[in-house]
Design a protein around this nucleic acid. Structure first.
Lengths: 281, 281
DNA sequence: AGGCGCCTAGTGGTCAGACCACTAATCCGA
DNA sequence: TCGGATTAGTGGTCTGACCACTAGGCGCCT
């Protein structure tokens, strides 16, 4: 039953040691010799080992949820982790890919402190990927997404009206200027539009709301662009959007939280209606 | 290394064939040292370069975003996909793990239609994992999470007041009864509490809001339980929570959307304050 | 003829070992 | 003393093999 193991009082070292400080890990031939991995044994599954890569995942999860692994810490080298958990390196790599897909770790080749697999915390990319795929799979219908987006951006606008720093405001102003350029292309306008909304969310000081807003807006990028292209009265639509943005910006800089929330909701709802019907006012 | 053969007539597949007719099968050949870092231009990504598993990821992404791969469709068998994309099977598996971590595919061994890797759409688990890890990493501070949760649940409560079906309502009632049991344990109460909030979100008919609510609530499970355990005046707290729930339930069944939204916000805010300070009213 | 069970094929799951590319630290000769 | 070559350690990839599982077919036995 070597599967029960773990639970070593790790600690020590900056990189979460995988084996006892005294080395001597070696293969725990303790009974049950033979059989690599549990494979054949239909005996008592004392440890819900399940898939090999899940054991690695569990190992990392436990240490993250337990606070032993923090942002910036290193995971043990893949080869060492494989030996410790008695799985193949391939299994370790699959687990690492899973963690990578969730924005929890980052891998780098080479030598030195910068190399190896380190714990990070960049969920924005992961969230974006996840939402984009599921929106594309029609699992999250666009109207649902829009409603959630409104809720989040109401929150962001409200907080931004209270907490936006001068730098934040300057960034928004710059994006407004960008969108004000005459004859701006639809795609470029859309990107600046997205950046404007994300800037508001970022200035709100709520990391989760900001990341979710960015992910949601990005997940709608292709559908929105499709609708943009189908619009005939482009100039009329864009003017309306600009006007909305100006009003939102004014409310935020004036610290009018309720107004900002109301305006951004109206803005999103109206824009969505315009795009949805493909007509200009 | 012996790069011979590579003829293999790819038999027709009913499951999104991998080889496109007339595709430019240009082998990247690895070489080209120096181009690392995505040279500025590169508008036409003729050479995916990047990592091997990313090529697989891209292949699947393109087909999902393009609508060729829909929920229920099968990916080609790993061995076939590897041969088609000229990568190793290990690389394919790493990409599959990434997709699996995002709730986009599901793998099953065996033979027949149920086996193989199929496209699914179960993002709830993936979202939960992602949020839980990032909350544990203190990347998403709990106060931020609570604010977002309030926004989402306001939306859910509002929609639930309009759309909740009799079955939904019955489910909520059942959870209320469960929580009303005298002497209920804290953990059990917490689970029922979570289920109650998730039931509201589910009855709202907004899939994204429901999944996000469930994920957020679950990501806070351990921190909330910790606070629960530190509470002395447990009976007083639990009574207050029960009272809140009853009021929310009443507003939803009465179709009072605004009331439901206000009540659930007050409820969450008050509960969080109570838990945060560790004191009973 | 009808079961019933063994066998086969196809799939993901895992493993072992090897080599490559990259990077930081170190060594060694000029 | 200095600078290039070497080394060591890391992730990235590949190859080829075997295992476990499942559906479906085949053949043997009743």
């Amino acid at each position: 039953m070597t599967k029960k193991k773990s639970r070593e009082p790790v600690e020590a070292g900056h990189t979460v040691e995988a084996a006892e400080p005294g080395e001597a890990r070696d293969v725990p031939e303790a009974g049950e010799a033979g059989e690599a991995g549990e494979a054949g044994g239909a005996r008592e599954p004392a440890a819900p080992a399940g898939q090999a890569f899940e054991r690695v995942l569990r190992w990392v999860d436990d240490r993250i949820l337990g606070g032993e692994l923090r942002v910036g810490d290193h995971l043990p080298p893949e080869r060492e982790l494989a030996k410790t958990l008695q799985v193949s390196r391939a299994a370790v790599r699959e687990a690492v890919r899973t963690l990578q897909a969730q924005g929890v770790v980052r891998s780098a080749v080479g030598a030195g402190a910068a190399a190896g697999t380190t714990v990070t915390a960049v969920p924005a990319h992961a969230l974006t990927r996840l939402l984009r795929l599921h929106v594309a799979l029609a699992n999250f219908p666009l109207p649902d997404v829009v409603e959630v987006r409104i809720s989040l951006e109401r929150l962001s606008a409200r907080l931004a009206a209270r907490h936006a720093s001068p730098d934040d405001v300057a960034g928004m102003q710059q994006l407004l200027d960008h969108m004000a350029q005459p004859g701006i292309e639809r795609e470029e306008f859309n990107d600046a539009d997205t950046a404007f909304h994300v800037a508001i969310a970022a200035s709100a000081g709520n990391l989760l709301a900001a990341d979710l807003t960015a992910a949601i807006r990005e997940s709608m990028r292709l559908p929105i662009l499709d609708r943009f292209r189908r619009i005939d009265a482009w100039e009329g639509v864009i003017d309306e959007l600009r006007h909305d943005h100006e009003a939102i910006y004014a409310a935020i800089t004036d610290g009018q939280a309720d107004d900002a929330a109301r305006l951004i909701e109206d803005h999103i709802r109206r824009a969505w209606q315009t795009l949805g019907s493909g007509e200009a006012p």
